[in-house]
Structure formats: C-alpha cells, structure tokens
C-alpha cells in the first residue's frame, strides 16, 4: 500500500482535499472555533503520512499541484475586489489609515520583542516581513540579510494562526464591521487569512484581498527603515 502511495501522482492532492472536507464536516458538527478546517487537514495529512510511512517529498510530488494554483487564485481575488469598488471608495480613509497602522504595529512589535529576547540583527530582519504574503516577504527578508527559509516558515505559521484565531479576536475586541474584519485579516495574516475572510463574506474577502497588496507594498518600504534599528 505504502509503495503504491509513494509513487501515486494523485495521492498528495486527494489526501489534502479529503482532510479539508473532513475538517469542514467536523466544524459543522462540533461548532467549535478550534475545529479549523485548515488545521484539521494539516493534522490529517501528517497523520496519514506517518501511518503509511510516506516521505514528505513523495507527498509533495502530488500536493504541489495544489500550491501551483495559488497564483491564478490570487489573480481571481480581483473579482470580489472589483465588485466591492463602491464600498472601497466610500471607505478609503478607513482602509488606508487602518492598513498603515497595522503594518506599523507589526514592525514595532517585532522590534520590541526582538529587543526583549536579545535577537541578532539577522534574526530580527528575518522576522520583520512576517505578516505579509510569502513571495513579497521572501524578497524583503533576502534584501535585508535575513534567513529566507525561516521567514517562509514564520509567514505560514502567522497565516494559519490568523486564520484560526480570527473569530475569537473579533469577539474579544468587539470587531463587528465586515470591512474592519476583512482589513484586519488581510493585514495580519495575508492570503491564508484572506481564505478565512472569504468564508466570512464577500465584503470581508474583498477588503482582505486589498490589504494583502497594500500591506505587502508598504512593508517593502517600511521594513528597510526599521532594519537598521537592531
């Protein structure tokens, strides 16, 4: 069985999709915010891989075709964004000011906590682009002299955390406006957060998509100003 699965071209994709569907079913049944479909699918795939002793690289041979669709899927985010254009025009001040504050608070908290833990310059700049989309974050980390592989890991963990924690954070801080939820998700946890925003609604999704772009570009500029501080 394991021999077959190692060589299978469709195993990686199938097990990922089945894991996510399982997560959706559990979420519906149990109604707990801990039942996050993304988290459950990751756990499911890890469990299947270890039960059948399948190497990650063999799984990725099939799984990579899912990741491959990420670029066209991001292009598609323009559609809900276009459909919410009126709302965007009406709220441009809220959009700009809140994304700028979000980017600034990301850089400031990374700076303060790096000081607190006594991180080196290399570790500090590795973390600076943690809240933005992977491809831009990699570029920023590389340019500032960070460790790109760790930046990628931190960015993905940030995204998953944002996706999982969003509903609780919105409850704790009484954030109810759909526009505010979308901006918060996109600015704090990029595309993985945007996947959550899309689940919450069209407006949330559109605002979150916009935040990925704006916060990504702002961070390219602002991170280079923050980099010399440690």
């Amino acid at each position: 069985m394991a021999g077959f699965l190692e060589k299978s071209l469709f195993f990686g994709m199938a097990v990922s999709v089945i894991g996510y569907e399982l997560g959706l079913v559990l979420k519906k049944r149990l109604k707990s915010p801990l039942c996050n479909p993304l988290l459950i699918s990751i756990a499911f795939v890890v469990a299947v891989l270890s039960i059948f002793r399948i190497d990650y690289n063999d799984y990725y041979e099939g799984g990579k075709y899912l990741s491959y669709l990420l670029t066209p899927a991001t292009v598609c985010l323009a559609v809900p964004l276009y459909q919410q254009m009126e709302l965007l025009k009406k709220n441009w001040a809220a959009v700009i000011i809140s994304i700028v504050s979000g980017v600034f608070s990301s850089l400031v908290t990374v700076f303060l906590m790096s000081k607190l833990f006594g991180f080196t310059h290399e570790q500090y700049v590795t973390l600076l682009p943690k809240s933005i989309t992977t491809a831009i974050g990699m570029g920023v980390s590389e340019k500032l002299g960070g460790v790109v592989t760790i930046t990628v890991i931190v960015i993905i963990v940030t995204g998953i955390l944002g996706n999982v924690a969003a509903e609780s954070v919105f409850k704790w801080f009484h954030i109810q406006e759909p526009i505010a939820k979308g901006l918060a998700l996109g600015t704090s946890s990029h595309a993985i957060g945007t996947a959550k925003a899309m689940e919450l609604g069209e407006i949330e999704g559109a605002m979150s998509s916009l935040s990925i772009v704006v916060s990504g570009i702002l961070t390219v500029i602002a991170a280079s100003l923050f980099a010399p501080l440690i």
Binding site: V17, S41, V45, I156, N163, I192, T194, A195, M198
Partner: peptide
C-alpha cells in the same frame, strides 16, 4: 478552494 492550496 484557495485554503487547500496552503496545505502542502
């Protein structure tokens, strides 16, 4: 299906 793309 975008969330699926982050699993691998």
């Amino acid at each position: 299906i975008m969330p699926l793309m982050f699993i691998p």
